[in-house]
Computed example of a mutant assay.
Amino acid sequence: MRIVLTIEEPNDAFQADLLALLAKHAAAVELDTEWTLERAGRFYQAVPKRAQRLLREAAVRDGFVSDEILREELDGKNLRGHAGPLKRALERGVREGWWPEGMQPPLGPRGPGFGKVKGYEMPQELVSTFFQAIAKPQPAGDGTPTLER
């Protein structure tokens, strides 16, 4: 049996009852943790401009944006603070009910370990989804640039 359920803006009592029911049947419940166009678009809109640029660059560059590309705009300064808003937006999405807990982060830092980040990488299976979601015209007409590969 497969049941697909979408609940927008549930009240607290309903949400608590539903979560209790799901917990009771947890062994048979499989959460949909796939990035869809809608989820990717909402995630992109939920992060600040600097993090949007990071996602946009990764999507345009087939999943990897190097530290040099990002530092061009920063006059060689460090990249500290780029990944934090991504993590917070992912956590916010769980709290707001935009997606379930367990969603794969769409982007992560790459480097030698401790020290300077050498770039940010998006899993290859997410590149197309995020590219399409970011390139899609935004309903508010916020001036998001058209993406080109």
Rank of each mutant, 00 (worst) to 15 (best):
G143R: 09
L147N: 12
R42T: 15
E68W: 12
A46R: 12
A83Q: 07
D32T: 06
G113S: 01
D75V: 05
D17T: 01
T6N: 10
D62V: 01
L147R: 03
R149I: 01
P109N: 03
V127Q: 08
R56E: 15
T33Q: 14
L74T: 13
L90Y: 08
D67N: 14
E148D: 10
I134K: 04
G41S: 08
G115D: 13
E96M: 05
P48Y: 11
V29C: 15
L147D: 04
W98H: 01
G93V: 06
E8S: 15
P139L: 13
E68F: 06
A27S: 15
W35V: 09
R92K: 11
F64H: 10
L54S: 02
L126M: 12
R71M: 14
L21A: 13
T129K: 01
G63H: 01
T6K: 15
A13G: 02
E38N: 06
R88G: 05
V29K: 10
L21V: 14
I69Y: 02
K136M: 12
R2Q: 06
V94Q: 03
A40K: 07
K118A: 13
L37C: 04
T36P: 00
V127R: 00
K118W: 05
R149G: 08
K116F: 02
F14G: 00
G63F: 00
K116T: 08
K116C: 01
M1D: 08
L21N: 07
F131A: 00
P105D: 13
E101T: 02
P139Y: 13
P106I: 05
R110V: 15
E72C: 03
R149D: 10
Q52K: 14
P112S: 10
H25L: 07
W98T: 00
A51D: 02
F14W: 09
G84Q: 13
V117C: 04
R92F: 13
G141C: 11
H82E: 10
L5A: 13
D12F: 05
L79F: 03
L54G: 08
G108S: 10
Q124T: 10
A89C: 03
L74Q: 11
A27T: 08
E91G: 00
D75F: 12
G41C: 07
K24N: 15
A27W: 09
G97F: 05
G119F: 08
P100E: 04
R92P: 06
N78D: 12
Q52S: 03
L54I: 07
A58G: 08
T36G: 00
D12C: 10
R80Y: 05
P123E: 07
L22N: 11
A28G: 11
L79H: 07
R95K: 14
L19F: 10
P145D: 12
V29T: 14
L86N: 03
G108H: 10
K49A: 13
G113A: 02
E72H: 00
L37T: 04
A20W: 12
R71H: 11
E121H: 04
E30I: 11
I134C: 05
F64L: 15
P100R: 01
G97Q: 09
L37P: 05
H25M: 06
A59V: 01
L126A: 04
Y44P: 05
A83D: 00
P123W: 03
P109V: 09
K118N: 15
D32F: 09
